[in-house]
Design a binder for these strands. Sequence first.
RNA 1: GGCCCGUUCGUCUAGCUGGCCCAGGACGCUAGGUUUUCAUCCUAGAAAUCAGGGGUUCGAAUCCCCUACGGGCUACCA
Length: 505
Amino acid sequence: MEKKVRVRFAPSPTGPLHIGGVRTALYNYLFAKKHGGDFILRIEDTDQNRFVPGAEEYIIESLDWCGIKFNEGVHKGGPYSPYRQSERKNIYKQYADYLIEKGYAYYAFDSAEELDIKRKEFELQKKTFQYGSENRMTFQNSLTINSEEVKQKISNGEHYVIRIKIPENETIEVNDLIRGKVLVNSSLLDDKVLFKSDGLPTYHLANVVDDYLMKVSHVIRGEEWLPSAPLHVLLYRYLGWESEMPIFAHLPLLLKPDGNGKLSKRDGDKLGFPVFPLQWVDPKSKEISSGYRESGYLPEAVVNMLALLGWNPGTEQELFTMDELIQAFSIDRVGKSGSKFDHEKAKWFNHQYLINTSNEEVANIFSKILEEKNIKTDYDYILKVCSIVKERVNFINEMWQQSSFFFIAPLTLDPKSLKDKWKENSSELVLEIQNIISNASDFSANALKEVVSIYIQENQLAMGQIMNALRICIVGASTGPDLFEIISMIGKDETIKRINFAIKK
RNA sequence: GGCCCGUUCGUCUAGCUGGCCCAGGACGCUAGGUUUUCAUCCUAGAAAUCAGGGGUUCGAAUCCCCUACGGGCUACCA
């Protein structure tokens, strides 16, 4: 019987999650749901020095906003609790001890400072420093010190780490769903620290132990983990879990649009687009980084865009609901090469989703913006504005600049429009129209169009002549949706007022 | 430096088992159309000698090798 699919997203709470991380979570989620499996959120906080308050909450909120749901996790609990590695602290040591017992690992007493010095020495000589088979016998560890002394040191409370003893010249095979078979010679690996002197495991040990204990079937993570995958394979082997080792899939990275480097948290707002799903306020510096949510993106658009960044369905479909993504997703249609983030395409996705979002939903968000601007109007009016304006913008928060004239009269008239469209006789023509409009009994857009058209025909005028000038009066510029619609909505008094105001200018 | 991964229009990509590809779609760009303006929208167009070079083959973007370039990793960080 096939193993039940169980995948995990395992971020460390060192700050906000960036969109690359969101994508990794998304692919895991799609994979899990596609195969009827479970999705787990595990927090990898084994480095207490890098802990950032609020980061875990941020991660949970972000994923929730995106509609990525977990079956188990720090926030949900589950049969393999706890899901925070700091709370699992006491379960790792036994596995490190087991490895020592089996001769696959050893105690090392070298201080970080000593090693730093060594590393620098090597660097000066242009040599590669490696704590491994070549020189592990030159350091302070349980391979060079007799066991009595080692016991003594440990019982004296001396700091120590536990390092894996990498075998010499062995070919390690990593099978990757995306990259195929990757072969690495063990001699290139160094004796990585598995257990730190602070009593916590490093990522390498913790992720292997937890994935095994939590019965994770597939490890889908970023490509930056590929170089350490052979080490993990070795750990599964030494721990006696090789037959239950999860299947690996290393995702290509998200690159910066300017070409070089992977997208990182520190890119913040430097790139001209948000790299975070939600706004993030750095707890220390109070620096604010913008988020997709606050920038007016719809979560469905972000998810859709992210899904297509590195994966494609093999069809020409581009717009997907989450359910459709789950249906269509397959790990072997994930590309191998990193992709640069394209802000323009992101905007397009948002536009597509905005058009398809109901007027009610748009109005709900837009009315909050109006409230902030102290605009008070009834809901139906806002609804109407949304229906007219939403397809003209990429983001809801662009709606105000495309619709302010529905709510307040223009304070200034756009000079360029005036120069291009305001002719000598414009004033008198507009006054004529004002007259017609003020006498109109039916104030629907259609009726207004009717009466004005008749006037234009009778006087052998061009539509543009009238409309352009009139638009400047009402809107303040040569932009916007159907003018009669606007006039009909703002009403007779307001229309007359605006024309009077404009004529004086 | 060492090791690993990658390389098709500006960008995301189709192409994976070689011929249907002098390379298709989308975003963006340009032009035209619709419109009372702007935007949307519609139509058309430019845009990749498939990183370069060598093979294999009747035939290669597709298979092999080399080179170049890009990226990742190289912490008692994840």
